[in-house]
Amino acid sequence: MGRFVLRRVLLLMPILIGVSVLIFLIMHLLPGDPARLIAGEDASEEEIEMIRVKYGLDKPLVIQYLIFMENLFKGEVKSLRSDVPVFEELFPRYLNTIQLAFSSVLIASILGILFGVVAAVHRNSIIDNLVMAVSLFGVSMPIFWLGILLILFFSVYLGWFPSGGKEGLSSLVLPSLTIGLAIAAFIARMTRALMLDVLSQDYIRTAIAYGFPRKTVIYRYALKNVMIPIVTIIGLQFGYLMGGAVLTESVFGWPGIGRYVVEAIFARDYTVVQVGIMVISATFVIINLLVDLIYAFLDPRIRRG
């Protein structure tokens, strides 16, 4: 187990170097001159040129890349726009993104699994149809629109939650709901399908025939067996969310990592984009590792193998 984890962590290095090269090339292939964007719209030629020289944007690409890597190892990569170390700007946003991703996935998992199981158990009943209809609506709804509707209803009319910004835990509710509901719908549909499959298998029928309590059969024997694919989905969703939920972050003014990177892309703030995407990639790899570890916990066969 230890070796498995170590190997996966070591694998991170080549992945990150690959990502850094790729992003560096893509950013420099994009049309757009960071010096001009940073200098401001009404900048003079001298102002633009000074910025170009100061940030080494006039140097050959290979040199620029090497300077970037050197600064990265020293932990001194600075944003072209603010001259502040990227990690310093990124870290609080990273924590915010973890917060939002975690609470969204929590809402999504609880609602999704619960409704999925209920729908499967009461197959073809009114509840089942209702859950399926609502979840179809949930997966097809644009996040942007749902977010604004939630603000209108819960902030403008009811005044229960803040309409945006980040003032205490209450401002986490609406953005998490916005993302959580969409993912919950997806998880509910998956859970239902998987549960239906398992419930029709022989060992379940046998268990019911032996007279085991219905709840035990459903939650211990059936649900545990569908958890592996569901955990995979939840893990993947969590991974995606750690890349930032740009739309939700924009609608609610939630200061997460996604918006930070997207704003940097528009401003061609190369260093921020590079570091931002490297951090997002590393997170994604680590979450996948965690998901693999959870498999082992859920399925003894994997642990032994």
Binding site: G159, S163, G164, G165
Partner: peptide
């Protein structure tokens, strides 16, 4: 000074009294 990138939300913030 609060940062809200989405213009619609900025308008709603006023209406919500936030």
């Amino acid at each position: 000074f609060r940062v809200i990138p989405e213009a619609v939300t900025r308008a709603l913030q006023l209406q919500a009294g936030d």
